[in-house]
């Protein structure tokens, strides 16, 4: 080997293989910026508590969005499913006086069901999921508002018995239980994505659905599963939300979908499908949450958050694109 090839190789080795590496670098950068900007407040107990309490539900949905994007689709209805689940929980308990635990089960199932509806609509109508879930985003929420109206539904709980609040927004081993839920799900989904054939199939379907079909993969089932997982995670997020705040607000949830989508993009998931893992969206979602928490800590008006998120999304998209170009160049000999 000549000198030049060796130099080229060592340089090439610096190009990260995985998008998640970039996502991690961005997270570190954002944390550093806010360490300086908030003079360390970002890692104060109060700030971390805020993150751990309100963060997990958003990240859960980001993971779901990541998988839907991986199979080459998009799910604009996550925000609606999230709120719908919290409303099912609170509504059943309050208006039908069903036990809180049963209401929780119903809420989780409603997430699964709505996700399944999305998936079935996408594969049977063959209309783009952008349009289908744009429809169901309005549809799910409209249905909810028609049935219950735009009134906040409180959840009463008795403090002396073990109730859903303890499981979904309580504390265990000094951690908020929602953090534990999140970690368990990240590990589980990561295992599915990286170690099982279903993970490979999701990527294959998103990369080239025709080839996937030619190789005999159950492409429709894979697509339906991705939407259903997204619905289930939104359902869990909704239960956490309602447990945490002891109420459900039917007319809320605005901006959730965009935040989740942005998190997935910062997580290195491609909008054109076939790229993305579980760790990336986890880091991407976390990055956005650090940004919003950071601004809260600085006492800056909310609108700045949007601007920084905008920059983060576009900057990372550019970074991923450049990385891609570098990898292509490396492979051309």
């Amino acid at each position: 080997m000549t000198e030049t090839t060796r130099t080229r190789w060592s340089l090439a080795a610096l190009i990260p293989k995985h998008n998640a590496t970039i996502s991690a670098a961005i997270l570190v950068l954002v944390v550093l910026i806010f360490l300086v900007a908030t003079q360390g407040l970002i890692i104060s107990a109060g700030s971390l508590n805020l993150l751990a309490t309100f963060g997990p539900e958003i990240i859960l949905m980001t993971l779901g969005m990541g998988l839907v994007l991986l199979v080459g689709q998009i799910d604009l209805s996550v925000g609606s499913m999230y709120i719908a689940s919290s409303v099912v929980f609170a509504g059943l308990a309050r208006y039908l006086e069903i036990s809180p635990w049963l209401s929780v089960v119903a809420a989780l199932l409603s997430g699964v069901l709505l996700g399944l509806v999305n998936g079935l609509l996408v594969v049977t109508t063959r209309i783009s999921s952008f349009i289908v879930t744009l429809g169901t985003m309005w549809g799910f929420q409209g249905l909810m508002l028609v049935i219950l109206g735009a009134t906040t539904i409180p959840i009463y709980r008795q403090d002396d018995v073990f109730n859903p609040h303890d499981l979904f927004a309580g504390r265990l081993l000094g951690l908020p239980t929602q953090v534990i839920w999140l970690l368990v799900i990240v590990v589980t989904l990561g295992w599915v994505r990286n170690r099982t054939r279903f993970g490979v199939w999701m990527q294959a379907v998103g990369s080239n659905v025709r080839a996937a079909k030619m190789m005999g993969l159950p492409t429709r089932l894979v697509t339906i599963m991705a939407f259903t997982i997204s619905g289930a995670l939104a359902g869990l997020a909704g239960v956490i939300r309602a447990s945490q705040s002891s109420q459900a607000v039917p007319q809320s949830g605005e901006g959730v979908m965009l935040m989740v989508l942005a998190g997935a993009i910062i997580g290195g998931v491609s909008l054109s499908g076939g790229k993305g893992d579980v760790l990336g969206p986890f880091l991407g979602g976390l990055t956005l949450l650090v940004i919003s928490t950071g601004f809260v800590m600085m006492g800056v008006v909310n609108f700045w958050t949007n601007i920084l998120i905008a920059i983060a999304v576009i900057a990372t998209a550019v970074a991923f694109d450049r990385l891609e170009a570098l990898r292509v160049r490396r492979s051309i000999r």
Binding site: V200, Q203, A204, G206, S207, N208, R210, A211, A212, K213, M214, M215, G216, L217, P218, G274, K275
Partner: peptide
């Protein structure tokens, strides 16, 4: 195609049937 593969028919299609984002091994 899943039925056909299960019954022992393997096909190399005229058009490319590879998933570009997957490794050669996958």
């Amino acid at each position: 195609p899943a039925d056909a593969r299960r019954l022992g028919i393997e096909t190399v299609y005229q058009e490319q049937a590879l998933a570009d984002d997957l490794s050669v091994m996958a």
